[in-house]
Every structure is written in structure tokens, then in C-alpha cells.
Design a protein around this nucleic acid. Structure first.
Lengths: 138, 138
DNA sequence: TATTGTTATACTCTATAACTATA
DNA sequence: TATAGTTATAGAGTATAACAATA
């Protein structure tokens, strides 16, 4: 057989999980990219726009629109970055923090449910492969 | 730490590899979704539009546009499906087959290069996890 | 009645390039 | 000069719903 490209499987899995995530979180009325951004911010670590862009895989120009909507809805705030006045620091508002926690819980739920019967070393291997593929683009 | 969600890593890896792939195949002047569709068709197996949609993770309405462009460029052909006249059979033209082979080679190159130092069982584990995540959405 | 695929609409994502402000 | 982020533009992806043809 031929259809075993990891990258093609990667894209299938991304589409499938993203769709599942948006269905479960439909009440939040957020797009996939907005969910992705909040999911990355959920750890409470403040990031500059470019750092967040690297984490979510969006270009600066794309991220501007995503952040515009999240800010307009009161989920994040743009502020100054100490020591570099060109950079924009992104922080969650209390409401954004609450929403991000819901997203984190949905992510964990889906992962727990999906990977229940799968050996821990397979999951660990997946992490290694995903990070290698992510790193390859630099 | 908190930022170790497999799904978030999945999205990062997808963005990164897709970007890399489009850069390497810039000469083809194809979008990510078009590359994805041709990459899935590269095995020479004919598929209906809905089967291809499931493989690439696109909805029917989205796929229509993707197929429109691929057909206009002479890379695929839409034909009838034996036994079900509602369905549309997608086949590669000779030119499409050639393009699909280039995509396959680029995919293989990236994967070989990226996963060179990674143990085979980690790669196998990644496959298991990716298929589990893909299957969870059903 | 249900399914396959297309069309229509509105919105979001994307790439690119030009721009402002800081460094 | 280089970097961080925004703006502008055009094209592509997305969800949704309505539709035609076929099952």
C-alpha cells in the first residue's frame, strides 16, 4: 500500500480533532484558530504576539485578526512588553481564562477518551514525532 | 507543565509541515488543500468525492471548489461512478498523476529527513495515535 | 425519504507586500 | 538596518442551508 504518509495522516487527524473540538465547544461560538490560540494561552504564561503565532502556526497578519476578535469579545488583552516597546504582550482576561480552561478540559477529555486503549509509549512516540515534524520547518 | 496537549502539538506540526511542503512545491502553484487532495489520490485508487472528502478532511461544499480548480488545471477529471449515478468519481489525468508523484516524493523526502534519527517504534506509535484521533470523530 | 454533490452566502484564514514604531 | 506588529488586498477554506438528481 501507499497511503501511509505520516504527514497525510497528520492532516486527517488534525481536521478530525478540530471538527470534534468545535462541535463540543459550539456554545462558545469560537473558530478553530481562536480555540487554538486560547488553548495555547491556557497555561497562564503571557506571550508576545509573535510567540503566540509560532505556537499556533499562524502568520503575524493572520494573528492580528484572531486577536482582534478575541479582544473585542473580552477574552484577551493586548499590553506592552517590558523592555521592548515594539512587542505586544497577550494576556487572558478573567473571562478568557475561564474560557481557556473549558477548552483545556475539552482537549483533555478528547485525548483521554481517544487514547484510552493505547500504550503509553505509543503516545510518547507520537509526541516525539510531532515535535520533530514541527522543528523541521525551521 | 501544561502545554503538552497532543492535539495542540498536532496542530503545530500540521501547520509547520504544510508550510514546508508548500515552500518546497512552490513551483506547482497549488494550495495546501489541493496538494493534500492530490497526495491522497497519488496511489492511483479512484475515489468518489465524498470518499476523498473524508480522506482530506474537507466538507462536500469545500471539496467542490478544490476539485473545480484541479479540474480546470487539467489535473483531475470528474466522471460517473458505476452503479450509483449520484456519485462523482475522481480520477487523476496523466498530468495529475505526474504532479501527484512529485507531491509524494516531497512528502517522503520531508518525512525521511525529519524522522531520520527517530526510533521506528516511535514512528509506529505516532501512526497508531494519529489513526485513533482520526477515528474518534466518527 | 435519504444520500451525493453543487450552489449560494457570509465569514474566517492565508500569503504577500507596504507601512508604522521601535530597536 | 532589522524587527514587531498592523493594515490592505485578493484568493482560498469553512459552515450552513437550500437545491437537483438519484437511490
Amino acid at each position: 500500500m501507499m497511503n501511509e504518509s505520516v504527514i497525510l495522516e497528520l492532516q486527517r487527524a488534525t481536521h478530525a480533532t478540530l471538527h470534534l473540538l468545535m462541535t463540543e465547544l459550539a456554545d462558545l461560538d469560537l473558530t478553530a484558530s481562536e480555540i487554538n490560540a486560547l488553548g495555547n494561552l491556557a497555561d497562564g504564561v503571557e506571550r508576545t504576539a509573535s510567540e503566540l503565532g509560532a505556537a499556533v502556526g499562524s502568520r503575524p497578519a493572520t494573528l492580528t485578526g484572531i486577536l482582534d476578535r478575541l479582544e473585542r469579545r473580552g477574552l484577551i488583552v493586548r499590553g506592552p512588553r517590558q523592555g521592548d516597546r515594539r512587542a505586544v504582550q497577550i494576556s487572558l482576561t478573567p473571562q478568557g481564562d475561564q474560557t481557556a480552561a473549558l477548552i483545556r478540559r475539552a482537549l483533555t477529555d478528547i485525548e483521554d477518551r481517544t487514547l484510552a486503549g493505547i500504550p503509553a509509549d505509543a503516545v510518547a512516540g507520537a509526541g516525539v514525532v510531532l515535535r520533530a515534524l514541527t522543528g523541521a520547518a525551521r
